[in-house]
Design a protein around this nucleic acid. Structure first.
Length: 427
RNA sequence: GUGGGCGUAGCUCAGUUGGUUAGAGCGCCAGGUUGUGGUCCUGGAGGUCGCGGGUUCGACCCCCGUCGCUCACCCCA
């Protein structure tokens, strides 16, 4: 608003989330946590920053994220650290460090940081939730991880989500494919877009992902990954597709789907929200990373996971017109106290200890003002205590849903308050 | 990093070819209703018109700069 030095704002590309929007966040995260638990996942908490190598080695030194988007800094001990740009690398680092029994299944919710110019659905600090499974390359686990994401999107009300599926193969078959692709690009280099005409050789797979017409025209005529998988990788992929089909989850083969991180092998996938027509319509994605644990210094361990951006899920919900809050956040009771003896504090305490959500007013406001606040709070009931009640050892309970003044209003002895309220709230 | 749009009350915005005390709705506070919310009526608080400079007798309005927000490109969640 103004430029005065005393006025601080959230840094560029970051946002505060206040009520009532924060309740939707609680609902999303709670829904995900419940679902992850049903699928056998446990929560993992890991540091927001790591040795920069954790991210460089995993996501690829040449990747866009590593080269220009990472928040790298040096601490007072001269260590080079980075704020996490995504969730997977840290989780795999933790796996390598602690060597928990496998199969190991962890879910997380975390901020993620990318230094870039913000725009709709793209922020310097955004939030992701996701899961990782380490210690098995059973295609059934690919199916379960994708199914978890799919069921989650259903649970939060999204209907227009498309699953894009591809397989990157393993080192060898992908290596052979990359050679074929490179040869094709070399032969057609002059037809590539301005950027890739010069840079295609550093990472030929990136060109598949290029959205410009020039590159598309070239790659469409070139070799496609799924056609060059080895026997094992092809079989794995087929079992994933069949497994998803058996669950009624429809997938679209996306032969040019190459995700932004270099660690992926075999199964890769992305969820596109069709309600979002912007370039930021990917609400989640993931894949298998059978080499990542080794790259981070651990023993060879297969892994797979997915992550989803919370801000984008919210945008997709909005675009689809989904309004369900997923979580009721209105109080059961509002205590109105006009006694000037502050009985609201002990009364609220008793009700809260009984498990009820209780709001109240402060600053000895007028009864009218307190009733108004009770109404605004969304509380189902008001408990009124004035001089009259106090003298009689009673409280007045009023149903705020009722438009009538005295129909539903009742008095009970103050020591019956908790029992009565519990009874009323149940109905 | 590059380009477009926009900065007027807590929020959403109006402000006539530059002219006197800058407005509305919502929200907030109080009163009408000295014990009762949601409707209604009345009143009130709240603005250095993002900031700095320039043009002018006079600038919310025009010009320049600057900061911020926002959207888009690249790439991604």
């Amino acid at each position: 608003m103004n430029d005065s030095p005393a006025q601080f704002r959230a840094p560029v590309g970051t946002h505060d989330v206040l009520a009532p929007e924060s309740a939707v966040w609680e609902g999303l995260i709670g829904t995900f946590s419940t679902l992850a638990y049903r699928y056998g996942f446990s929560l993992i908490l890991s540091p927001l920053f790591e040795d920069v190598g954790v991210f460089n080695r995993g996501i690829g030194e040449a990747s866009e994220v590593a080269t220009k988007e990472m928040y790298v800094f040096t601490d007072r001990g001269n260590r080079t650290l980075a704020l996490r740009p995504e969730g997977t690398a840290s989780v795999v680092r933790a796996f390598v460090q602690h060597q928990p029994p496998t199969p190991w299944k962890a879910w997380y919710v975390t901020p993620a940081f990318r230094y870039e110019r913000p725009q709709a659905g793209r922020y310097r600090q955004h939030h992701q939730l996701g899961v990782e499974v380490l210690g098995t390359d059973d295609p059934a686990v690919d199916v379960e991880v994708i199914a978890l994401a799919w069921r989650f999107y259903e649970a939060i009300g999204l209907r227009r989500v498309r699953l894009l599926l591809n397989s990157m193969g393993h080192d060898e078959c992908r290596g052979r494919y990359v050679e074929l692709l490179a040869a094709h690009l070399a032969a057609n280099a002059s037809s590539l877009c301005d950027e890739h005409r010069e840079t295609w050789a550093s990472n030929p797979l990136r060109v598949l992902d290029c959205k410009r017409e020039a590159c598309r025209a070239v790659t469409e005529r070139g070799p496609m990954l799924p056609d060059h998988l080895c026997e094992d990788c092809r079989a794995h992929f087929e079992r994933v597709v069949a497994g998803l089909g058996a669950l009624g989850i429809e997938s679209t083969l996306a032969p040019r789907l190459v995700r932004g991180f270099d660690y992926y092998t075999r199964t890769t996938f992305e969820f596109a929200a069709d309600a979002l027509d912007s370039a930021q319509n990917a609400i989640g994605g993931g894949g298998r990373y059978d080499k990542l644990a080794e790259q981070l210094g651990g023993r060879a361990t297969s892994g797979i996971g997915f992550g989803s951006g919370i801000e984008r899920l919210l945008l997709a919900r909005e675009a689809e017109g989904v309004t369900a809050t997923l979580l009721e956040r209105s109080p059961d009771v509002f205590v109105v106290d006009t006694t000037s003896a502050d009985v609201a504090t002990p009364y609220a305490d008793r009700l809260r200890r009984a498990g009820l959500a209780v709001h109240r007013a402060y600053d000895q406001r007028s009864m009218k003002a307190q009733m108004k606040a009770a109404d605004r709070s969304g509380a189902r009931f008001a408990v009124l205590v004035g001089p009259t009640e106090l003298a009689a050892g009673q409280v007045t309970i009023r149903d705020l849903r009722s438009g009538d003044h005295d129909q539903t209003q009742r008095s009970v002895a103050h020591d019956q308050l908790v029992a009565t309220m519990l009874e009323l709230v149940k109905k």
